[in-house]
Design a binder for these strands. Structure first.
Length: 634
DNA sequence: ACCCACGGGTGGAAACATCA
DNA sequence: TGATGTTTCCACCCGTGGGT
């Protein structure tokens, strides 16, 4: 029987371990996020060995095998299945290509798992690009969990599913008509799901590539300067117009509309040469169902994006080209600023940015815009050097190019020294953004840091308030002591989830590597207090896990090996995401936070396995996962 | 006492969404 | 499409606390 360290070392030889953990993380988030597509699924038993089995990710192959055998030996795409995250993630999976052949399951997203993490700003700090920021609100959270359920919440059991996601409903209707946010329905569909309205959804296997050159599929060579940045599934309504599939899929996968401007799609059957949409059909009214309906098992939607700006001036300006130009311009300019320059009003631009513009722009307006755009493009350099133009005296940081970087720095150092601030300012000034904007000074950066601290504080206060409100409404009559009891119970529940999730991961990892996985959970599950934590509705039925080299656990002090600790890092991200989802859905578990104050630095705690510190100082929904195998003891 | 750094509070402009 | 409401965020003022 291999030890855990053996497993990991072997594992790391074959693939990027953390990439795999990321993948698990993504999948788990998907599994815990209720969506229509998810809920319409009866949790198919694909890949399920026995009723006690742990959750199984639905792989491309599995998906295909549901109705037909998998396409022989060659995978439908040459890309690493580990690649999951959209580019806007802070984390990128680019370059994680050490995937052992034949182990595609590990990296596969669950069917329909679409990222909702565009730009990944926190819900409250969700400041982002003018267009993307809004896009997040409207297009986010389109996870689907077909074939994937919570590890602890009763695998593949509908009621358990509701336990894991109970009460988490999307309050905000998705304005984009293709998201599949539909109410639950008990009617299952084997591959495609069916909404109550009768609209089927189809899982579309998407491979997103960034290309430095011209976006085209015309020549075989043109793929040589492309790099795959995402390999995932998007669940799209079958009624989606085929011509809209690329944009819709991109939005579903967490990209913002402006990125779709330059995108080009092609359909690839198995590993054949991709067929561009124009080759496939001229019918503008053709829907996804018409084209894709019978091909879900074998077809892949390859989407190429241009890493450059991507919008080329058309000969004749149409409603569509104006929209594309506007979206392109909004990458570098705010709506208001653009409205001041161009013939469109800010409100029109706002509607375009959100793709809400119902009526077409008049030909006259399009021409007017086109004329302006040509001049704008011609003088683009002149604009940047026009120092005389009355610019806003307020320092603004570019929401796409600067703020994310600053946030990264902020996370690393919340109270930087003056020297560091100066460095940050210098770094920012090196960026192309500062060619057109006033230079950043250390003082400005300092103010930003200060405001960021305030923002952070405000956010946690808001969270706290939200939780307290929830608590008031739901637990008015509950005595304090019982609150504590409940807290403990919930705590334990989450701990069980965390522990089981980890075990599941380990199990999955080892089974992928061909290790025996029928051993006992020994250390973790048998640890003192482990059994009592699983009380209530969250009974953990982990019947097989990987025996591993984990240090023994003692009450009040968890000393998990570093290997496991490194797992927990990945799990942190899962829980952070889950928490963000919870926040958005306004269904945070109140009782936890009531008794458990927060810590502002997760990473600090992730280093520490001291139970008291953990239990006292953290938002449990994030951090319970950090210490697997731990049980709450007062 | 003075300096410095920081947090709290807040004004007001920018950015954005929505209404009529 | 202009007007208006809301949210976000930069920047400033002021009080406080630590160090010298």
């Amino acid at each position: 029987m291999p030890t855990w360290s053996n497993i990991q070392s072997t594992f790391s030889d074959k693939m990027d371990f953390h990439a795999a953990m990321e993948t698990f993380a993504e999948a788990w988030v998907a599994a815990n996020t209720p969506t229509a597509v998810n809920s319409t699924e009866p949790q198919p038993q694909v890949g399920k060995q026995n009723s006690d089995d742990l959750p199984t990710l639905l792989t491309k192959e599995q998906l295909a095998s549901k109705q037909s055998p998998p396409p022989s030996s060659s995978p439908s795409s040459p890309v690493s299945p580990v690649q999951l995250s959209p580019p806007s993630h802070a984390h990128t999976t680019k370059g994680h290509s050490h995937t052992p052949t034949g182990h595609t399951a590990i990296g596969q997203p669950p069917v329909g798992h679409t990222h909702s993490t565009t730009g990944h700003t926190s819900p409250t700090t969700g400041h982002s690009h003018p267009t993307t920021g809004h896009t997040q609100q409207t297009t986010g959270h389109t996870h689907s969990t077909t074939g994937l359920t919570h590890p602890t919440a009763g695998y593949n059991h509908p009621t358990s599913q509701s336990h894991s996601t109970g009460g988490h409903t999307h309050k905000k209707p998705d304005p984009i008509p293709v998201t599949g946010h539909t109410p639950q329905t008990p009617n299952p569909a084997p591959v495609s799901s069916v909404t109550p309205a009768g609209t089927k959804s189809l899982p579309v296997h998407c491979i997103i590539e960034q290309t430095t050159g011209v976006v085209t599929f015309d020549t075989p060579e043109c793929g040589s300067n492309s790099s795959v940045e995402l390999d995932s599934y998007a669940i799209l309504p079958s009624t989606t117009l085929f011509g809209e599939v690329v944009r819709t899929a991109l939005i579903k996968l967490g990209y913002n509309p402006s990125e779709a401007i330059s995108a080009k799609g092609a359909v690839q059957i198995k590993n054949w040469r991709p067929l561009t949409f124009e080759v496939i059909t001229d019918d503008e009214k053709a829907t996804l169902e018409d084209i894709w309906g019978e091909l879900t098992q074998v077809a892949t939607l390859r989407i190429r994006l241009s890493s450059s700006s991507g919008f080329t001036v058309p000969d004749t300006w149409t409603d569509h080209s104006v929209r594309c130009a506007v979206l392109s311009l909004l990458r570098e300019s705010s709506q208001s600023a653009l409205a001041k320059e161009c013939p469109l009003t800010q409100s029109t631009i706002s509607y375009i940015a959100n793709w809400k513009y119902e009526s077409k722009l008049s030909a006259e307006k399009c021409r007017e815009f086109g004329d302006w755009y040509k001049i704008k493009i011609q003088h683009v350099r002149g604009f940047s050097e026009d120092k005389s133009s009355p610019r806003d005296t307020r320092m603004t940081f570019h929401p796409e190019h600067e703020v994310p970087q600053m946030r990264k720095w902020y996370k690393q150092c919340k109270n930087p020294t003056n020297a560091k601030l100066k460095n940050f300012a210098d770094e920012l000034n090196k960026g192309h953004v500062r060619l057109e904007r006033p230079k950043v000074t250390a003082a400005k950066v300092k103010i930003w840091w200060k405001n960021e601290r305030q923002r952070e504080k405000r956010i946690s206060q808001k969270k706290l308030e939200t939780n307290e409100e929830d608590d008031e409404t739901s637990q008015e009559s509950v005595q304090h002591s019982s609150d504590i009891e409940k807290t403990r119970s919930l705590l334990s529940c989450d701990l069980d989830k965390s522990r089981s999730m980890l075990l599941w991961q380990l199990d999955k990892s080892s089974s992928l590597l061909g290790f025996e996985t029928s051993g006992n959970v020994s250390h973790l599950m048998d640890s003192p207090g482990a059994s009592q934590t699983s009380g209530g509705d969250s009974s953990v039925s982990v019947s097989h896990t990987t025996a591993m080299d984990v240090d023994s656990h003692t009450e009040g002090n968890v000393s998990v090996s570093h290997d496991v600790a490194s797992h927990s890092k990945a799990m942190e991200r899962v829980h952070l995401r889950l928490q963000r989802e919870d926040l958005r859905q306004g269904s945070h578990d109140s009782s936890l936070s009531q008794d458990v104050p927060r810590s502002h630095d997760i990473s600090e705690l992730s280093q520490s396995h001291d139970i008291s510190e953990l239990s006292q100082s953290h938002d449990m929904s994030q951090d319970l996962t950090k210490d697997t195998g731990w049980s709450q003891e007062g």
